[in-house]
């Protein structure tokens, strides 16, 4: 039975992965990856039972926590104006171009 559960989890992982590849857009990917993360939690827990190593569950706890932090970080950090960052990057490129070019730099 446990093997069957594991197979189900693997199949679901593949499905989630497919969604993460296809997208479209950021939110679909976050969703898919979040789901993939919880499936790994289950996978590790089930693997612990399958191989008789219940200390795997510690790792499961860790995944559950860390996955959540990662999702929050994605939301918090991607939710802003991308154009602003592009402008800033362009500024930096301009600054670098303004500095007197040193010979050898291009040769390097």
């Amino acid at each position: 039975m446990i093997v069957a559960v594991m197979a189900a989890l693997l199949v679901t992982m593949v499905l989630a992965l497919a969604r993460a590849f296809v997208g479209p857009g950021r939110y679909n990917r976050i969703l898919a990856i979040n789901m993939f993360g919880t499936k790994t939690v289950l996978f590790v827990a089930v693997a612990g039972f399958l191989f008789g190593r219940p200390e795997f569950l510690d790792i499961g706890i860790l995944y559950a926590l860390v996955n959540f932090v990662a999702v929050v970080a994605v939301l918090r950090l991607t939710h802003y104006d991308d154009d602003l960052a592009d402008d800033l990057a362009d500024d930096l490129a301009d600054d670098l171009a303004d500095e007197p070019a040193t010979d050898g730099e291009d040769r390097a």
Partner: peptide, 15 residues
């Protein structure tokens, strides 16, 4: 476990 596996796979298909 069987019910759980069923829900997991169906959720995956749904996704």
């Amino acid at each position: 476990l069987a019910a759980g596996a069923l829900f997991v796979v169906s959720g995956g298909v749904g996704l």
